[in-house]
């Protein structure tokens, strides 16, 4: 049990690193990532689960960070846009999004990249319809989604044949 008026000490595994911090039980993962851990790559558009902007990965599943408490994430693997690529380079999705103009204003991009990564990790060559369905929880106001679909397809192709 946690007392609502007292901060609790949490250790979360974010992008492969364990980060310790103290917070009240009511802090959402979104708030903790942005305000306590300095990971402002995760954006927010409504904080009510109505836009998909704040999507991150927990155990490689897309999750809305605005609707999950930080304390509910202990012991789980959290990945944000900052950690999509394991090394200093870009993840193929990040590369493809940049190349094809799938990021216009770039505000929905971190969330969409996370959703798309989970898709490609479970389905190496998704059809256009499968991409459409997987991204149905992420709104984008700039692109009309078309360049996003194309970028996911390009990334999938490159991940199939990594070395050229």
């Amino acid at each position: 049990m946690t007392n609502g008026k007292q901060k609790i000490l949490l250790a979360l595994r974010v992008n492969g690193e364990v980060r310790e911090f103290a917070c009240y039980p009511n802090r959402t993962l979104l708030e903790v990532l942005r305000e306590d851990l300095g990971l402002t790559g995760t954006k927010h558009g409504c904080e009510l689960g109505e836009c998909g902007t704040c999507t991150i990965l927990i155990d490689n599943q897309p999750i809305l960070s605005c609707l999950i408490l930080a304390l509910e994430c202990e012991g789980r693997e959290i990945v944000t846009v900052e950690g999509l690529s394991p090394g200093p380079g870009l993840h193929p999705l990040q590369e493809a999004f940049g190349e094809l103009g799938a990021a216009q204003c770039g505000y929905c991009t971190p969330g969409i990249l996370c959703t798309a990564k989970a898709l490609l990790d479970r389905n190496r060559r998704p059809s256009r319809a499968e991409i459409r369905a997987a991204l149905a929880g992420n709104l984008c106001r700039c692109t009309g989604y078309i360049k996003i679909f194309e970028a996911v397809e390009l990334a999938a192709e490159r991940m199939e044949r990594p070395s050229e």
Binding site: N3, Y24, P25, L69
Partner: peptide, 12 residues
């Protein structure tokens, strides 16, 4: 940002 009010949290 819309935030949650404070509460006591149990995780049985």
């Amino acid at each position: 940002m819309m935030r949650l009010p404070k509460f006591v949290y149990h995780a049985p």
